[in-house]
Design a protein around this nucleic acid. Structure first.
Length: 201
DNA sequence: CTACCGATTGACT
DNA sequence: GTCAATCGGTAGA
C-alpha cells in the first residue's frame, strides 16, 4: 500500500471534483491512544461565496477563517455541541470545502468503540459528528495541514473501489437553502452512509 | 451583555 | 415517524 498523503495539488482543484475523488480514499488519524482509519464513503461539497448553504457564504469570520486559507487544510467546526470535519479545496481566498459525512472503519475499531461508548459497528463512523468523535477530531485540529502525513491525513490510496457507476449524487442533508443542488456524493449501498434510508438513493 | 439558532444526534411514540 | 438536548458562533441591544 502506498500510504503517502495526498499532495497539495489534489486539493487545489474544483471542489466537486475533489469531493468525488475523495470517495474510497483512506482517512487516518493517529493520537497517543493509537491509530484509526477508514475509507471515505460520503461527502458534501460547499461552494463558498456562491453557495447560500456554505458557512463562508456571508464572508470570513473567526469561525470559518480556515475555509479562506490554502487548500489541503482541515476545517473543523462545532454544530449542536458536536464537531464536523471538512477538507479545504481550491486556491487560498476561494472558500470552498468538502464535508466528510461517513467513513467505513478499517483500523482501530476497539479504540473507536471506546470513544463512542461501545456501540454497534455501523454507528461508529456513520454521520459527520459521530466520525469526529470516533477519530478524536475537535477544534484544536482546525487548520491542520493534511499533506504532512501525521496526526491526521488522507492517503493517496484507493481502499474501496468507487467507479462512477457506484457514486450517487443527491441533495445535501440538514440545510435549509440550496436544497436543489446535487452536491452530496456517496458510495451506493454502503452501510456507513448517513441519514435514514430515504437518503440512501 | 442577551437571544437566537444550527452542514446533528439519539431517545422516544 | 417526532422531538428535545446541547453550546459555541453570531447578531443585535
Amino acid at each position: 500500500m502506498s500510504a503517502r498523503p495526498l499532495p497539495r495539488e489534489f486539493y487545489d482543484r474544483d471542489v466537486v471534483q475533489v469531493a468525488r475523488d475523495l470517495l474510497g480514499k483512506r482517512l487516518t488519524r493517529v493520537t497517543s491512544e493509537g491509530a484509526t482509519s477508514g475509507a471515505i464513503v460520503e461527502v458534501e461539497a460547499y461552494r463558498g461565496q456562491h453557495d447560500p448553504a456554505a458557512h463562508s457564504y456571508r464572508g470570513q469570520t473567526a469561525r470559518n477563517a480556515t475555509m479562506f486559507g490554502p487548500p489541503g487544510h482541515l476545517y473543523v467546526y462545532t454544530i449542536h455541541a458536536k464537531f464536523c470535519m471538512n477538507v479545504v479545496t481550491e486556491p487560498a481566498g476561494v472558500a470552498h470545502a468538502v464535508l466528510i459525512r461517513g467513513v467505513e472503519p478499517l483500523d482501530g475499531l476497539p479504540l473507536m468503540q471506546q470513544r463512542r461508548g461501545r456501540e454497534p459497528l455501523v454507528e461508529l463512523t456513520r454521520g459527520p459528528a459521530r466520525l469526529c468523535q470516533a477519530m478524536s477530531v475537535d477544534r484544536t485540529l482546525d487548520g491542520w495541514d493534511l499533506t504532512l502525513g501525521r496526526e491526521i491525513w488522507i492517503a493517496d490510496e484507493q481502499v474501496l473501489p468507487t467507479p462512477d457507476t457506484a457514486i450517487i449524487a443527491s441533495p445535501r442533508i440538514g440545510i435549509s437553502s440550496a436544497q436543489d443542488a446535487l452536491l452530496r456524493f456517496f458510495v451506493n449501498r454502503n452501510a456507513f452512509v448517513s441519514g435514514p434510508k430515504r437518503y440512501h438513493r
